[in-house]
């Protein structure tokens, strides 16, 4: 019963993050919204695991989701800041010199 309430609350929070992602107004708001959405997704996965009765399976997925979500946020930030993921750094330096 409590788990269902927590799940519903998390879905409301995800809706709020989605609204923020749609409204913007800057790209950073959207990245923040996707980060918050990722945090709530992890919690939804874990709570859903307990609700379905096989939590150890779902927690492994949640552990992977934490790591991938962090890398994803940093990668999107880096692309929005520098325009690439850093591979072509040496080439641009050669262009400038």
């Amino acid at each position: 019963m409590i788990l269902t309430i927590v799940l519903a609350t998390l879905l409301v929070g995800m809706t709020a993050a989605l609204i923020r992602a749609i409204k913007g107004p800057t790209v950073y708001d959207r990245i923040l919204a996707s980060n918050a959405l990722g945090t709530k997704t992890i919690l939804v996965i874990v709570v859903l695991g307990f609700l379905m009765g096989d939590p150890s399976l779902y927690i492994d997925i949640a552990l992977m989701y934490v790591l991938i979500g962090f890398i994803g946020t940093v990668a999107v930030l880096k692309v929005s800041e520098f325009g690439d993921l850093g591979q072509s750094r040496s080439r641009t330096e050669e262009d400038h010199s």
Partner: peptide, 22 residues
Amino acid sequence: LLITGAFFVLIGATGLLRLPDI
């Protein structure tokens, strides 16, 4: 603790919507 956590998730969502700047 579960109910408290759900409450704070709601507060965080409210903050995400209401606050004025990134």
